[in-house]
Design a protein around this nucleic acid. Structure first.
Lengths: 196, 196
DNA sequence: CCCTTAAGGCAAATATTTTGCGTTAAGGGG
DNA sequence: CCCCTTAACGCAAAATATTTGCCTTAAGGG
């Protein structure tokens, strides 16, 4: 008997389908994770518990995300998405300072550090990449407010190197979260302010 | 009957004992982890497997480290300890460049990224702190070679902020590991080299 | 409307983590 | 030097979590 028409030998790669049942389940799972994270006691944040609350079987979660770490990484990355563009005070330098101080405070907080740990703990680099992408977008938004005729704004990359990176390094690798003064000095230096 | 002499009501806090049986077991477990990490297929890197190889019961590991993540974080932090001081070429600027390029290459490599993930994935901040402590020591060693009569070396903190941090940020949060040119420019800028 | 296929549910099989309890060895005091 | 106390370990049973095989479901495409 001839094997029934194998259509798999075509280069017709199986294209992943967008939206639909999968999407609803994914949303339910993610929401379940966020809800369970409200309850203190992180030991309740387990795959079976998440599955239960999402109305899904554990195997669904394991098959889609592989491990709890990956699921948490994805959720954390999502939650890092800013819910608003940086405040517009009319002075972009001020916007930058205001936004940055808030950014640092959020990242240094316990929930912030937990999110960072989760994002960086995942194996897929996408999630971490998304975080810096969000940050970059916020910076771009602020820099777009500069009147280019009057002054030349710093490049986004320079701000990432000279301000964001040092702040993140301290949060991730030292016990001393960045003080407000320290952060401000980084800004001033990056913007070329003379404070000798 | 009088409860037999309770000597626990004294302020004689029970002091954790250094070295001894515990120390040997700890060493055996850590070595087991390192050996198992040689074998590709990280799915073999499991607590029962580690316990087996270390000649220990799993419960010992769970009680001491809590989770696999914590154990891996500790081992990774240990392995980040440099095994030699930075090469001494006679020119500290060169020493810095040589050391840094090697540092970046190690951290960007797949094993390096895995170690970073493990270190940052643990809950105890000590391990990450130790990493930056190692880095700081290496930098200090290089800077100590500067002849202070002739030139003023940069501060270690400035190097951390302006060179190490940007490099680490890119490794952790972007898909593009730092190119050699990029790293060199960071050094030049931090050392005040005019390259306009 | 039917066909194909990726994804989900269910439940059994595995693997892991946790826990209670008895044992061991390191230190300290008499 | 011996005993006493205690933290840490081993062992094994119990509790959880993870993996897997097989069947069912629903989204898209022809």
């Amino acid at each position: 008997m001839i094997e029934k028409s194998k259509n798999t030998d075509r280069s017709t790669e199986v294209v992943p389908r967008p939206g639909g049942r999968s999407a609803r389940i994914q949303a339910a799972v993610i929401q379940a994770v966020e809800e369970l994270k409200q309850n203190q006691d992180p030991s309740e944040l387990t795959v079976p518990a998440i599955a239960d609350r999402a109305g899904v079987t554990p195997s669904t979660i394991y098959r889609r995300w592989g491990t709890l770490n990956e699921l948490l990484a994805e959720v954390a990355a999502r939650n890092m998405r800013p819910d608003a563009p940086p405040q517009d005070t009319g002075d972009w330098r001020n916007d930058l300072a205001v936004w940055l101080h808030e950014f640092v405070e959020e990242m240094s907080s316990e929930p912030g550090r937990v999110m960072l740990r989760e994002v960086l703990g995942g194996e897929r680099p996408d999630n971490a990449g998304q975080c810096s992408s969000f940050t970059r977008q916020q910076l771009d938004t602020i820099l777009a407010r500069v009147n280019n005729d009057e002054e030349r704004p710093p490049a986004t990359d320079d701000l990432l190197d000279q301000v964001i990176a040092p702040v993140m390094y301290r949060i991730l690798f030292t016990n001393a979260p960045p003080e407000r003064d320290y952060t401000q000095k980084l800004i001033d230096k990056a913007l070329g302010v003379n404070s000798t």
